[in-house]
Design a protein around this nucleic acid. Structure first.
Lengths: 371, 371
DNA sequence: ATGAAAGCGCTAACAC
DNA sequence: GTGTTAGCGCTTTCAT
C-alpha cells in the first residue's frame, strides 16, 4: 500500500516532463523531493543535511526513496549562501614542480578528507599578481580558509583576506609573519645546522655553500643555521665560502635550480681555496652539482662530498644517492590542516599559532668520511 | 558638493556599525553599495557585472566609490545560484607526482585564465572511490566542466555527471570512450612507434621492452606502436621480448616506476637472448634502468642503449641524458581547455570531439648508433 | 515530529 | 537609464 502510494506519487510528479521537456534539463531540487515524498521542504532539509534534528524513521525512508526517484543532487551553492559556511580550504603554492609542496598538499588533503573538508589547489607560478588574484577569487567564492606559501613581498592581501573573516595559514613568506596567521614552517635554521653538523662530524672543515639568492626568508635562515654549526665547532666560515646565484627564476620545467647547481659548481672549482665538501641549499641544486662534477670526471664523494636539503624523490634516484636533510612536509601539512579547521570552526581570532617541524638527516652515499 | 553628499551618505550608512558591531563582521552586499551610492540594486548589479547593459558614467562613478567605501566583495555564490553558471573547471588527475599531469595542468590553467575561467585541481591518488567522490563534490558545487585522467574502470560516474548537464574531457581512461566525452589524448601508438623507429634507424634489431602491466589502455597502445615499427622493418619481435612488471602500485613518493626499471633490467640481463637496446614505456622506468645498469658497471649507451617515453625533467638531469619521446602535454592542456570552454558556453551536446597530439622524438645521449 | 515562511546575495524580466 | 520585484536552492526560526 505504501509502495502503491509511492508509485502514484511518482507518476503524478512532474519529474518526467522536468527532465525531458525543454532540452535544458532542470536539476531536481529539495522541493521536488518534498513533493514526491509528500513532506515539507523543511523536513527534507533536516533529514538530508540537518545535524541530528529529529525526523521520524518513516519519513526518512520516504525521503530517501524520493531522492532516488527524482535523482536529486544537493546544490551546495544554495546551502553555502544560506549558512555562510564553505567547508573548503584553498591552497596556494608557488609551483607544482617542487616536490616539497606536493607532499605538503598530500598531507593536507588526507587530513582534510578526514575532517569532511574539501581542498582546492592553485599555483601562483611565482607570480605575485596571480597570487593576489587567486586570493581574491577565493574571497568571492567565500572560501574562508587559505593555506599558502606566498611569493608576495607584502602581507596586505592576506590581512585583507583576514579582515573579511578568513583564516590563513602561512607556510612560507617573505614578509614578517603577523600574529593573525597560523604559521606552519619547517625549521630552516635547524635544517641548515643539521646538514652542516653532519659534514663536520664526517671530518670536513673546508665547506662551501651553494645557494639561490637570499631574498627569501627561508634561504637566509638556512644559511644562518649553517653558520651556527660552524661556529659551534670553531670552524672558520666567511661570506667568501657562500656562492650565490645572481638571479632567481622559475622555469616551467622546474629545471632552474638544477642549472644553478651546474653553473655555480664550476665557479667554485676555479677558486684558489680548496673545498672538501659542498652544501647545497636544496636537493635540486645538489643534483645539478653532482651532474656537473660527473661530467668533469670529478668523483663524488671520493674527490668531493655533497650534501643537500629537502629530500626529494630525485635524490635517491641519482648516483651516488644524495645525502640530505628530510623535510617532513607531509606531516606538516597534516598538522597545519588540523589547526586550520579548528580555526574555521571556532570562529575566534587566531593569535600567532606557530607550528615548526624538525628536519631529519638522511644519510646516503654522497658524503665521504675524511681521515 | 557631490563630494559632500557622499561624505554625508557615508556617515549616514550603517557601514560602521555593520563592520564593528556584534563581533562577527557582516560582509557588505550589493544592497549596501546601492544604498551608499543612492541607486537601486539592479543598477549596481548592471554596473558591476552586467555585460554591456547601459549605465550612465555618472552612476558608474558613484557606484565605484560606494564599493570602495563599504569595502564590497561580490559574492559569487549568490551569482552562481541565480545564473546557474559556474565558470570553473574541475581537474582530476591520478597523482601530483607525475610530471606529465603537472604540465597538462599548467597548459589548462594558462588557457583558462585567458578565458576567464578558474580551475580547481584534485588528485584521486589513483583511488577509484576518491575519484568518484571528487566528481560528486563537483556536481554538488555545480562545477559543470570536468577534465579528467580517470582511474575508474567504469564510465558510469562520468555519464551520470554528463546526464546532470556537465561537460567532460577525458585525457586517459580504461573504459571505452563514449562519444559524449571530449577525448584529448596523446597518440600513444605513434609515440611507441616513434621510439622504436629511432632505435631501428640507429641500427638496433634486438630490442627489449620493459613495461608496467598492460591493463591500462595507454600502455597497450604504446606496445602496439612498437610492434608496428618492428613489423614495418620486418624485424622479429615476440612476446618474449616484452618484460612486464607483475604488479602496479603508486608510492607516495612516485618512486614505483623507477624501481620497476631497476628490478626488471636485472631479469632482462639474465636472459639468454642478448639485447643491444631497451625501450622503456616511460622515462621514470628508463631512469631506473640506467641507474641499475650503472651499479652493475654496464655502460649506457656503449654497452646497451636505452630509450624512454614522456620527456620528464629528470630525463635531462641524469647522465647519460635520456633519449626519449616528448609528449606535448602543455599543448594538449591548452587545446583541450579551449574545447572544454566552448562546450560549456554553447550548451549543445558534444559528440565525440577528439584531440590527438603527436609526440616528438628528443635525441640525447642514451642511444648509440650500431655499426 | 512537522510545516510555513523569511531570507542568504545576486540577476533578469518587466515596468517606466 | 533606472527601479521594482520575483525568484535561484537552501536552512532555520517560529509555530503547531
Amino acid at each position: 500500500m505504501l509502495f502503491y502510494n509511492i508509485i502514484i506519487r511518482y507518476m503524478e510528479s512532474e519529474i518526467v516532463e522536468k527532465n525531458e521537456s525543454n532540452g535544458k534539463r532542470e536539476k531536481s531540487t529539495i522541493v521536488d523531493v518534498a513533493r514526491v515524498a509528500g513532506t515539507s521542504v523543511a523536513t527534507v532539509s533536516r533529514a538530508l543535511s540537518g545535524g541530528n534534528y529529529p525526523v521520524s524513521m518513516a519519513t526518512r525512508k520516504k525521503i530517501q526513496l524520493a531522492v532516488e526517484t527524482v535523482g536529486y543532487t544537493p546544490n551546495l551553492l544554495g546551502k553555502m549562501l544560506k549558512t555562510k559556511f564553505n567547508p573548503t580550504i584553498g591552497i596556494v603554492i608557488p609551483s607544482y614542480q617542487n616536490p616539497f609542496y606536493i607532499q605538503l598538499i598530500h598531507g593536507i588533503s588526507q587530513k582534510a578528507a578526514l575532517l569532511g573538508y574539501t581542498i582546492s589547489t592553485f599555483s601562483s607560478q611565482r607570480n605575485v599578481l596571480f597570487e593576489r588574484n587567486i586570493i581574491k577569487q577565493l574571497l568571492q567564492k567565500r572560501i574562508m580558509g587559505l593555506m599558502i606559501a606566498s611569493v608576495d613581498d607584502s602581507p596586505n592581501t592576506l590581512t585583507q583576506y583576514i579582515s573579511n573573516g578568513g583564516k590563513v595559514c602561512v607556510f612560507e613568506s617573505n614578509f614578517k609573519d603577523l600574529n593573525t596567521f597560523i604559521v606552519a614552517k619547517t625549521d630552516m635554521i635547524e635544517s641548515g645546522r643539521t646538514a652542516m653538523k653532519h659534514l663536520i662530524s664526517m671530518g670536513h672543515e673546508n665547506i662551501a655553500i651553494i645557494t639561490t639568492p637570499l631574498s627569501k626568508q627561508s634561504r637566509s635562515s638556512t644559511i644562518k643555521g649553517c653558520r651556527l654549526a660552524m661556529a659551534e665547532h670553531n670552524h672558520e666560515f666567511t661570506d667568501e665560502d657562500i656562492i650565490i646565484a645572481p638571479y632567481e627564476y622559475e622555469f616551467e620545467d622546474g629545471l632552474y635550480e638544477f642549472e644553478v647547481g651546474q653553473d655555480l659548481v664550476k665557479i667554485l672549482l676555479e677558486r684558489k681555496k680548496k673545498y672538501t665538501a659542498i652544501l647545497a641549499v636544496n636537493d635540486l641544486i645538489a643534483c645539478g652539482i653532482i651532474n656537473e662534477l660527473k661530467k668533469m670526471n670529478i668523483r663524488v664523494p671520493e674527490d668531493i662530498s655533497v650534501i643537500g636539503l629537502d629530500d626529494i624523490p630525485l635524490s635517491s634516484m641519482i648516483s651516488p644517492a644524495l645525502t640530505t636533510v628530510h623535510m617532513p612536509s607531509y606531516n606538516l601539512g597534516q598538522k597545519a590542516c588540523q589547526l586550520m579547521v579548528d580555526a574555521m570552526v571556532n570562529q575566534e581570532e587566531t593569535y600567532g599559532v606557530a607550528l615548526s617541524i624538525r628536519p631529519e638527516l638522511v644519510i646516503r652515499d654522497s658524503v665521504k668520511r675524511l681521515e
